[in-house]
Design a protein around this nucleic acid. Structure first.
Length: 570
RNA sequence: CGGGCCGUGGCGCAGCUUGGUAGCGCGCUUGACUGGGGGUCAAGAGGUCGCGGGUUCGAAUCCCGCCGGCCCGACCA
């Protein structure tokens, strides 16, 4: 490729509406352009890197013996109704009617369609299978953001394992786990594998692969000691034992005018510290009012609540709903003596006494509450969000909490989809059993951006050789001088001959412009061909990563460069 | 969905308070000088000021409505 003929629209300034580093750099360096919120066009450079990401993932999937498919984006409602996800996903799925009035949706994931195809499997002898595809997914995200990190239309590699039993699933899952580790390593960044919530995918076990970065939207609790790591949506921790003193036989009501929050009550004269208060949250689960109790200084991890109760819809109650259920406003809510509502409490409240909580009467609280004695708790669950410094659930050492970007997610699905779609095989005993499935996803666009998040400096992107749009740029400093241009062209062609992805910067620009562009785009190796070097029959090789430079005899340059580049491909 | 900010040549911005010929930097075109880290000079091209309505002799500017984008939160494989 000759730069003078290429469409590489680099920009001097950061785009005004970009916040994330990968967003700024991918736009500035001419890899991507925004079309609308959460929808991006990939430009030629972007596509080149994208295809290299795709190639790496494909190689690893083929290494698992997986078979590539291509499934449609347009799905019939019927299929999604069978899994129960048509209405469950209604908020996030693009759903509309075709001209005949039939409901169709754009696929946001493909469990349904793959399970439907798996219905043609007849015997355990055909298993295990791993099926995969690269496919455009559509998700009507409530808030797309951060450039390519969170978008509404994107390409995902999704794969699905089909096994006759859970033991087989365990092996398929493990093999995917290892393949994913190799993929991220080849893409050029380190990941942490963390326990995660399975969310609307279902199943009982899932692992997210996380890149540690401030640009991420997830938070992970991790233990530096034993390696435990879990998404805050799932993480648990150990708390120090709390010794409560014995309290009166019955709670005592006392006036708390102007107290609206936990902090207010902690600070008021004769108040109670937050860890001795009970926080009462009101939720509607399938439109039934449920009280959720936590320690005053704890936050709810809503996903943990969603994951641990059987309900299709869960949402916080509105003020008027709270008023009519409890007769008081937030600030004075409590569960003491509440017999007609379902009450769930966080484990950390078990056995606690002498606590303070709202009296369900505006401006009044109760003190001397013994949770198990005074509150009809119907379910004890782990619901609180882990805070930094709390004890690791495995080894009790203090936990760290840090931000992460989810770059891959693998799920043990079980038989949810196969049962819904009727995907069954006969096992060794001639008995019909549902296929046990796993599903495994990597978003390519997001990973492209993740590479940039993990590999850049103040001058621009620093692509790992594996995923760089070009591996080498031959920068001709004085293309108007015939000897310079010809020397550059010969080197360029020699590198092509060695199978190197090389671009010839033959533009009639000043050197600084070309150097800045090469750095911004992040091409790993730059060879400078200029009059000064040519006078001594040398060219200069510069490595983007560390700025290291060395002169090479022009006659040996192509081979030396090719060897170095090839050595870094993996 | 709540809160905040913002839409003016390709990019980044000023102008709006107080209505009166649409401006700056970068980029782009042509030419000259230049040439090892975004150079200089000269001459140019390029704008329905997001859209619609209203007020006014006159609207980028004031008013109303809508659309779009970004950020925070809610939400989210």
């Amino acid at each position: 490729m000759r730069w003078s003929q290429a469409f590489i629209p680099t920009l001097r300034d950061d785009p005004a509406d970009a916040e994330a580093i990968s967003h700024k750099l991918l736009v500035r360096a001419g890899f991507a352009r925004q079309l609308m919120a959460g929808v991006y066009s990939l430009l030629p450079l972007g596509l080149r890197s994208f295809q290299k990401v795709e190639k790496i993932i494909r190689e690893e999937m083929e290494g698992l013996g997986a078979q590539e498919f291509s499934l449609p984006s347009l799905h019939p409602k019927d299929l999604w109704e069978r899994s129960g996800r048509w209405s469950k996903m209604a908020g996030e799925m693009f759903q509309f009617e075709d001209r005949r009035g039939s409901d169709v949706g754009l696929g946001m994931t493909h469990e349904e369609v793959f399970a439907h195809l798996a219905g043609e499997l007849r015997s355990y002898k055909q298993l295990p299978q791993i099926w995969y595809q690269f496919q455009t997914k559509f998700r009507d995200e409530p808030r797309p953001k951060s450039g390519l990190l969170r978008v509404r239309e994107f390409t995902m590699k999704d794969s699905y394992s089909l096994d006759v039993d859970h033991e087989g699933l365990g092996q398929s899952f493990e093999r995917h786990f290892e393949a994913y580790r190799r993929i991220f390593k080849r893409l050029g960044f380190e990941v942490v594998a963390v326990e995660a919530s399975s969310g609307s995918m279902g199943g009982n076990e899932s692992i997210e692969f996380m890149l540690r970065t401030e640009a991420g939207e997830d938070r992970v609790a991790g233990c530096g000691e034993c390696g435990y790591a879990a998404n805050l949506e799932k993480a648990s921790s150990r708390l120090p034992e709390v010794e409560d003193e014995a309290c009166e036989a019955t709670p005592e009501k006392f006036p708390t005018p102007k107290v609206r929050t936990i902090d207010d009550l902690a600070e008021m004269e004769g108040g109670t510290p937050a860890e001795r208060q009970i926080k009462t949250l009101v939720y509607l689960m399938d439109e039934k009012v449920v009280l959720v109790l936590l320690r005053g200084d704890h936050l709810i991890a809503e996903q943990k609540l969603i994951d641990s109760v059987e309900a299709d819809s869960i949402r916080p109650a509105r003020p008027e709903e709270i008023q009519s259920a409890l007769g008081a406003q937030p600030g004075s809510l409590g569960a003491v003596g509440v017999e007609d509502l379902f009450v769930i409490a966080d484990e950390s409240l078990r056995g606690r006494r002498g606590l303070t909580t709202g009296a369900n009467e505006d401006g009044f609280h109760l003190r001397g509450v013994d949770v198990e004695r005074d509150i009809p708790v119907k379910g004890w669950l782990d619901l609180r969000e882990v805070l930094p410094g709390e004890g690791c659930p495995m080894c009790s050492q203090p936990l760290d909490v840090y931000k992460c970007l989810e770059v891959g997610h693998i799920f043990k699905l079980g038989t949810r989809y196969s049962e819904a779609m009727g995907a069954k095989v006969l096992d060794q005993n001639g008995k019909s059993v549902p296929i046990v499935m796993g599903s495994y996803g990597i978003g390519l666009d997001r990973n492209l951006a993740a590479i940039v998040e993990a590999n850049h400096d103040e001058s621009g992107i620093i692509w790992p050789v594996n995923v760089s749009p070009f591996e080498v740029v031959v920068t001709v400093l004085k293309p108007k001088a015939v000897d310079c241009l010809e020397a550059g062209q010969r080197l360029y062609e020699a590198l092509l001959g060695h199978g190197i992805d090389v671009i010839l910067d033959d533009r009639d620009e000043r050197p600084g412009v070309k150097f800045k562009d090469a750095d911004l785009i992040g091409i790993p190796y730059r060879v400078t061909v200029g009059p000064k070097g040519l006078a001594d029959s040398v060219v200069e090789l510069k490595r983007r990563r560390d700025g290291q430079t060395r002169d090479l005899e022009i006659a040996q340059a192509a081979l030396a460069i090719a060897e170095e580049v090839l050595d870094e491909r993996h």
